Simulated scan of single mutants.
Amino acid sequence: MALRKPTASLFTVLALIAATVIGLTGPATAATGATDASSATGQEFAAQAKHAGLTGAEAKQLQTTVDGYLAAQGGTQVAANEIALPGKGEIVVALPGERQARDLTGAKSARACPYENFCMYTGTNYTGTQFNLWKCQTYDLSNWNYPGSWINNQTPGTRARFLDRNYNTIYTTPGAYSYSSHYDWAPVWHVIPC
């Protein structure tokens, strides 16, 4: 009998439940798992969500999603829909009702896969939440039990490796620049982007 990746850790489920019940809308960090809508940053994130056209309920839904990624992946929330993974990369969450992740800070107009990054998407055709990874290390995947996509925009020739639960390589991408608009993440438990 094949074992499947858990769909959520207990900590992730508890964080999502707490965020939903309390209605958190401010910044969060993996260290605290808490948000504070009264903080200057929380107000800035709320303003970003409102400027993006989100209703109050959609803003709460977005924050709940962000909190889930913070609990699973760590990092620090730096925008209403963005998590910095210091020294490693970033996660950009697609807004409720939207297919692709986009920048809400005004610093960047589009969420293309940055040069020297390996980008993974939770949806096919480069849709859903976008993970931009640049550090050469092992990244653990949580809740990636469905088809998605990837772009390898690292330096020419660099290959990413996808590993199973026992850290065995199950797929090596073609050298950069390469991409797949449809890739089944279900057997992948870890990714090494270089």
Rank of each mutant, 00 (worst) to 15 (best):
A30M: 05
H51C: 00
T172Q: 12
C113T: 12
R159W: 01
L163R: 02
E58C: 02
R111F: 01
E116V: 11
G97E: 02
Q43A: 05
V93H: 07
Y177H: 14
L133D: 09
V13K: 14
A94I: 03
R111Y: 05
A47W: 01
R111K: 07
S142F: 03
P147S: 13
N125W: 08
P27T: 04
A110H: 05
Q130H: 08
K135T: 06
R161M: 03
T35H: 09
A46F: 00
L133T: 03
T35A: 12
G75A: 04
R111T: 10
V66I: 15
T122R: 14
N166F: 15
T105W: 06
A112L: 10
R102T: 08
W185Y: 15
A49Q: 00
A72C: 03
W134H: 14
T155V: 01
K60P: 08
V93R: 01
S38R: 11
I151C: 04
G53F: 08
A80V: 14
T7E: 11
N81F: 01
R159M: 08
N143M: 02
D184C: 01
I151W: 06
R99P: 01
G106S: 13
K135N: 13
Q63W: 07
R111A: 15
T20L: 10
A72G: 07
G97L: 07
Q43T: 04
G175Y: 10
A28K: 03
E90Q: 15
G56I: 00
Y146P: 00
A8V: 10
A47S: 15
A2C: 00
I151E: 10
A112I: 09
R99T: 14
H51I: 02
Q48Y: 00
A107P: 00
N168G: 09
S178V: 03
I151V: 14
I17W: 04
Y177W: 12
D164M: 09
D164P: 04
H51W: 03
Y146M: 13
N81K: 09
I22F: 09
L14R: 07
Q154P: 02
N152V: 01
N132A: 14
K135M: 06
P174G: 14
Y183F: 15
Q48N: 06
G23A: 07
N132T: 05
L163W: 06
S178K: 04
G89Y: 12
E58P: 03
V92N: 10
R159I: 03
P147W: 13
N81M: 01
G97D: 13
G74Q: 13
Y126W: 15
Q63F: 13
A34C: 11
Q77F: 09
T129C: 00
E116H: 06
G23L: 05
P193W: 08
H51Y: 03
A110Q: 03
L141N: 11
A37M: 06
C119Y: 08
P156E: 02
